[in-house]
Computed example of a mutant assay.
Amino acid sequence: MATIKDVAKLAGVSIATVSNVLNGRRYVSPELRSAVLQAVRTLGYVPNGVAQSLRSRKTQTLGLIVPDITNPFFNGLVRVLERSARDRGYQMLLSNSEENAELEFDLALALASRQVDGLIVIPTQDSPEYLRKLKADGLPVVLLDRIGGEDDLDRVGVDNFQAARVGTEFLIRQGHREILLLVSTLELSNIRDRVEGYRQALAAAGIPQDPRWVVECGKDAPSLEAVLEAIRQRRPTAIFASTNRLSLLAIQAIRRLKLGFPEEISLLGFDDFEWSTLLEPYLSAVVQPIEALGFQAAQILLDRLKGDTSPPKRVLLACDLAGRQSVRRIG
């Protein structure tokens, strides 16, 4: 376990400088402050003051960290979580990590320092080490949506494997065999599970698999060019977009290429929102249970705060499928 001495040594500063950076009581130059914070992140160091605060008074506040507040899926979860907390007499403190692991770490420490009673995190990567340290220091933590890893943290998400398999099987039943799968990043286990569900559905239908039909578009700024190039080269009859942002990107690519939609190419999205039925063709989509996801995560955290000491929970919820105009039957 890292100590303040380890942080000082790695940053090349004195222990007093590290202490001043972390407690904010004295001025430290931007250069030294940056070096100290980088060392803290690298070592996963949680200051003793934070650990002590976790064992002190209750504040009736919960911390919530999301990776992108502009994403309608995460925005929907925020609304459910905030309402669930308020109904139980808690206030929710929201932070946006902007898909930045270092910022997420800083935000988590800041929320812990503010003595939140518990923390819900949609992480930028699978099972961050610092969250296990915060839990060991007495802070209840629940991982939501991105729940890869095996440790003692509570987790709530959907069955991504089954959701992608059901979606792919739906396209196959409509006569599609040339199905292009768009993914954000294979660094996240929930996306890898969606890829595996897609692959197993193809295998069960006797459709040959080619890794080039899985297109990684990027997590932070998905690449339109990657989608355009894949459509030009593969000429799919259907696209399965594995996130809501990629659904929009796929529609943009289809319009850019002036393809008949859905006459020449069909589209199945992941996540269902108001815009799905604003413009024709209405978007067919795998539908994640946002209300149930948020409620379950809040319930588990609040139960922990009431003294629940049962083994770590891993909740997987089923998705639905909304078949609409964007998927055309062929053959």
Rank of each mutant, 00 (worst) to 15 (best):
A201Y: 10
L186E: 14
L202K: 12
A203L: 15
Q174V: 04
S189D: 15
E196Y: 01
A201M: 07
R165G: 02
L181I: 08
H176C: 07
R177P: 09
Q200T: 12
H176V: 03
A164Y: 01
Q200M: 14
A163P: 03
D152Q: 15
T185E: 05
D151V: 11
Q200G: 07
F161Y: 14
D193V: 03
T185N: 02
G175W: 00
G175D: 03
I191Y: 00
D193R: 02
L188S: 00
G148D: 03
L181R: 13
F170W: 09
R155P: 05
R177C: 13
L153Y: 00
E150K: 11
L180Y: 10
T168D: 00
I179K: 02
L180P: 13
R177G: 12
Y198K: 05
V158T: 10
S184L: 12
A201N: 06
L202V: 09
V156T: 06
D159F: 00
V183N: 05
I191R: 05
F161T: 03
V183D: 08
E178F: 01
I172S: 06
E178Q: 14
V195L: 13
G148P: 00
T168C: 09
G175Q: 14
L182T: 00
A204V: 02
G206E: 15
T185F: 12
L180S: 06
D193A: 08
F161W: 03
A163Y: 03
F161N: 06
I179G: 13
N160H: 10
E150M: 09
R173F: 02
S184R: 11
L153V: 06
L186V: 15
L188G: 06
N190V: 13
I172Y: 06
E178R: 13
E178P: 01
Q200C: 03
G149H: 10
F170V: 14
Q174S: 14
S184W: 04
L188F: 02
G157D: 00
F161A: 05
L186T: 13
S189Q: 14
S184Y: 02
L188T: 07
F170H: 14
L181K: 01
G167S: 01
R192N: 08
N190R: 04
A205K: 09
L181T: 08
V183K: 07
N190L: 11
E150G: 13
R192Q: 15
F161V: 00
G148M: 04
L202T: 05
E178T: 11
A164C: 02
G148Y: 10
A163K: 02
N160L: 03
R173D: 06
D151L: 01
V183S: 06
R194L: 01
R194M: 09
N160S: 10
V156C: 05
